[in-house]
Design a protein around this nucleic acid. Sequence first.
DNA 1: TTTTTTCGAGACGCTCAGTCTAATATTGGT
DNA 2: ACCAATATTAGACTGAGCGTCTCGAAAAAA
Lengths: 212, 212
Amino acid sequence: MHTPTLMPPRRRGRPPKSRDALTDTRELLLRAGLETLTEKGFATAGLDEILGRVGVPKGSFYHYFASKEAFGLALIERYAHFFARKLDRHLLCAELTPLARVQAFVDDAQAGMARYDYRRGCLIGNLGQEMGALPESFRAQLQAVFADWQARLAACLRLAQQADEMSVTADAEQLAAFFWIGWEGAVLRAKLAQSAEPLTVFARFFLAGLPR
Amino acid sequence: MHTPTLMPPRRRGRPPKSRDALTDTRELLLRAGLETLTEKGFATAGLDEILGRVGVPKGSFYHYFASKEAFGLALIERYAHFFARKLDRHLLCAELTPLARVQAFVDDAQAGMARYDYRRGCLIGNLGQEMGALPESFRAQLQAVFADWQARLAACLRLAQQADEMSVTADAEQLAAFFWIGWEGAVLRAKLAQSAEPLTVFARFFLAGLPR
DNA sequence: TTTTTTCGAGACGCTCAGTCTAATATTGGT
DNA sequence: ACCAATATTAGACTGAGCGTCTCGAAAAAA
């Protein structure tokens, strides 16, 4: 069962102090977890699968994480952070008009999904869908992440209003909420259809529907 | 473990010919499966849980269904049928203008989610999200269901164009696609937030964004 | 009646997730 | 240089769920 796919055999005992990001076990686990959970979700993702992927034994896992639940919460945090950075990179890009920034984000996300053949979705969306079977502790976390994304997008939309790309009477906050509500649906459909079309369709009509 | 919750103890042996919908075992299983899968999804839903809920032993299950996968496919079919009827009830309602019919569907769905405290979502959306871990046979089925819903809504939107509620230059088919893409996201968020707000927000902006 | 068909009952094996304990290597203090 | 404390790996262990199988019982058909 253990097929340390491409990692060198791991050494026992307390490790030397210096660990780079490529050998740090905790780091490895988080990365592998992210990949697996974005593809399969929380409940379906087997520990053994994640472990096998990076050749880490179970003992190590439970050294770094108190439980699968704790692991999940750590992943949310990490993913939220990663995503917020990506969002900022686009939505704060001074070289583009505010609405062009939104489109830039969409293009980026699209490329991201294509890169993995539309097998991986959005961790937050995946887990949100699974709330029915997830520890209740996840709910607040996930909602907080959405609130954060919404705030970032709303700020960009307000800039769009200032730049006269959109009516100043519109409610930027609500529009941002609308975007993320629908976006998660688009990601889900893209996974199902194994195509970028749902993403482009959603983005196109979102932008087209914005009050002038 | 077996707590035949509220069903009478089932009788052994070949059953009499007449079975009403309340005692037919296959029917019972499908109903219970629908409840559980809309809450939890496919992978998470344990057979034992579904079985325990209606007091049906495993032997019966595997008498009626070749596998959990076959059961899932049967559920998709049944849910799609149920939903198509609901859709028609609203979208073909002659007493309302076409766009009012869309709103009527939204209101209905909203009430439906509230009835179960926002724990149950859309079976098709749930399974779609899980495709990464589902038998590939599900994919085509699920996409077909979405295509069907899209066609029904598109027809309604074309009526809206004829009734001059919406620009005749708009692409009704694409708009219908847009609706379902986002709607699934809204259902997902409603489950997460345990509130109808995502549904209303999505519907409001969808209708408001329609080209005049 | 006798035979055949239909279905319910639940034990069984297998796989796999998640937990826990023991073993092993490194560090830091003296 | 040694020893204690610490960090990490190794893998055994438990329990749950899926799918199978055999058997039992009752209605239907002959």
